[in-house]
Design a protein around this nucleic acid. Structure first.
Length: 261
DNA sequence: ATGGTGGCACCGCCA
């Protein structure tokens, strides 16, 4: 890359990439990102709409089994060292690669169902294994860009009713601690760093609520976390709430971070 | 108000 170059990354839980394809391509036309991490593609690999994405000028890698989960990564430059899963597990939830010499990890963390469900243990184990992956494959003083639907609101400010939702799987102390343990390896939450103390900063709203955006009933569970060398290069980070007002929106919206190299 | 909607795969499950 040339020096003083803008480089932009974004993450989006699409909740079906086939239903959201036109919205994603339109958003990309308006937001010239270099990397877009997508979660919940909900499509098997042989039905993934790769041709339409490549026709729009993006490289794309993906892994899914259809129905649930599924991850994808769109990029202007061709990604290298593409891998899925951790130790052969969660291949439809973890995508690792390198784009423009930036190591990128895209994760769709298990939601967990309920705190007494086995899926909740899967969620806690997922964070432990992720920290081990970071310790093994990356370093806090080297660039790393971790994006995705982490299914955790890290702090009370990141959820609309922290008292009532204290036992929710995305806010229970166990998952906040689990994410915090990965965080403490050496990561910076870019949106919160640039919008410290700002309330009602959400990336997800429940479909079942009537006017969730207007009534500020949301959750900030989609995150862009980076190591210090990248945090120092970050010039802006935001949540694109307007994109959630699309005709047939996902229940999540785009989170964006802009860097200057 | 312990409901509500949306997506996928089927006639229930997951978010």
């Amino acid at each position: 890359m040339a020096s003083s170059e803008r480089w932009t990354a974004a993450t989006f839980n699409a909740n079906s990439i086939r239903v959201r394809l036109e919205q994603i391509l339109a958003w990309l036309a308006d937001n010239e990102v270099d990397v877009l991490a997508i979660q919940e593609t909900k499509v098997a690999d042989d039905e993934f709409p790769a041709d339409a994405i490549r026709d729009a000028g993006y490289h794309v890698v993906y892994r899914g089994e259809g129905g649930q989960a599924g991850v994808a990564l769109l990029s202007r430059s061709e990604p290298s060292n593409v891998g899925f899963g951790i130790d052969g597990r969660d291949e439809d939830r973890v995508l690792c690669c390198c784009v423009d010499n930036v190591p990128v990890v895209n994760t769709y963390v298990p939601q967990g169902q309920q705190t007494d469900a086995s899926e909740f243990q899967h969620k806690l184990r997922f964070f432990r294994e992720l920290r081990e992956l970071f310790e093994r494959e990356y370093a806090p003083d080297e660039p790393l860009l971790w994006m995705g639907d982490l299914n955790v609101a890290p702090e009370p400010i990141d959820i609309y009713d922290p008292k009532r939702l204290i036992r929710h799987v995305d806010f229970a102390p166990e998952v906040r601690d689990a994410l915090d343990h990965v965080h403490k390896w050496g990561l910076v939450d870019l949106v919160r760093r640039l919008h410290a103390e700002e309330p009602d900063l959400y990336s997800y709203w429940d479909y079942r609520a009537k006017n969730p955006i207007e009534e500020k009933k949301g959750w900030r569970v989609d995150h862009i976390l980076v190591t210090t060398p990248l945090a120092e290069r970050c010039v802006n980070a935001w949540i694109d709430v307007e994109a959630r007002k699309a005709e047939r929106p996902s229940d999540h919206t785009f989170v964006v971070a802009e860097f200057e190299f």
